[in-house]
Simulated assay, not measured.
Amino acid sequence: MSTTVNTHESLSIVSTAAAPAAIGPYSQGIKAGDLLFCSGCIPLDPASMQVVEGGVEAQTEQALKNLKAVVEGAGAELGKVVKTTVFLKSMDDFVAVNGVYAKFFGNHKPARSAVEVARLPKDVLVEVEAIVSLK
């Protein structure tokens, strides 16, 4: 069965070249009313679309840079991030990821969940998604 579904006029797709292009049938972000829902950001270099070199710290930093690019591409800022979800390949990396995350967000402390998952796209070590206020 073939069905065509179009994005409802109440929603706006967010797309920025400053973050990696979507590698599947999804958008980098969707604005819905006063909220922005950011897709999970993995540590791809936006120019090469390759996973960044280095361990979990380097991957976390790149994933967060990609998230920031989507947030700013939607006209918001990191201080308006309401909630993040951090997906980890290994909970053993929690402390290292937490260190990079804390520096990245500074004094802002969004609500957050962190979970270990069996596998992530392109076998990366970390992925971060967010919900952001547009007010």
Rank of each mutant, 00 (worst) to 15 (best):
A96W: 06
S27V: 01
Q28S: 05
G54I: 10
G75R: 11
L35R: 12
S48V: 06
G106F: 06
G55E: 03
A58L: 07
P20V: 03
C41K: 12
G99M: 10
V71M: 00
S113Q: 11
A19G: 08
S15F: 14
R112K: 15
G73Q: 02
V115K: 14
E129V: 12
A58S: 02
D93P: 05
L44C: 04
T60Q: 06
A69K: 02
K31N: 05
G40V: 08
L35Q: 11
E72A: 12
Q50K: 15
G79V: 09
L36F: 05
I42F: 10
A19D: 03
A58D: 08
S113C: 09
S27C: 12
G79N: 12
I23V: 13
P25T: 14
A47C: 01
L125W: 05
T85A: 12
L64P: 00
E57H: 09
G29Y: 01
L67D: 02
L67M: 03
A130V: 10
A118Q: 09
K68S: 12
G29C: 02
V70R: 10
A63S: 02
T84R: 06
P20Q: 00
F94E: 13
R112E: 13
N66Y: 08
L36R: 02
V86M: 11
L125Y: 02
I42S: 04
G99P: 01
F104W: 10
L125F: 08
N98R: 14
K89G: 06
F104L: 07
P121R: 04
E53K: 13
A69M: 00
G106S: 07
G75W: 13
F94S: 11
I42N: 00
L67E: 00
G99I: 00
V128I: 09
N98H: 12
Q50H: 15
D92R: 14
E77Y: 09
P43N: 05
G24C: 04
Q50T: 10
E127D: 12
V124M: 11
D92I: 09
G54R: 04
E53Y: 01
V124D: 08
F105C: 00
M49L: 15
G54V: 11
S48A: 01
D45H: 05
G79D: 11
S15E: 15
V70M: 06
D92P: 02
Q59Y: 05
V115E: 14
S90A: 11
P25C: 11
V86D: 10
S113H: 10
V97A: 05
T60F: 01
K122D: 11
V117A: 06
M49Y: 10
Q59T: 07
D92L: 07
A22W: 03
G40Q: 08
I42V: 10
A58Y: 01
I131V: 11
V82T: 11
P43Q: 01
P121K: 07
G33N: 02
A17R: 12
A96R: 15
S27R: 03
L44Y: 07
V51N: 09
I23P: 03
E129N: 15
I131S: 06
A111L: 13
D45R: 06
I131E: 05
I131Y: 01
A102V: 15
V70F: 07
E127K: 08
L36C: 04
G40W: 06
K65H: 08
I131L: 10
P110E: 09
D45E: 03
G75F: 12
V86E: 10
D123W: 05
K31T: 12
K65P: 04
K89M: 00
P110D: 09
E61G: 04
G33R: 02
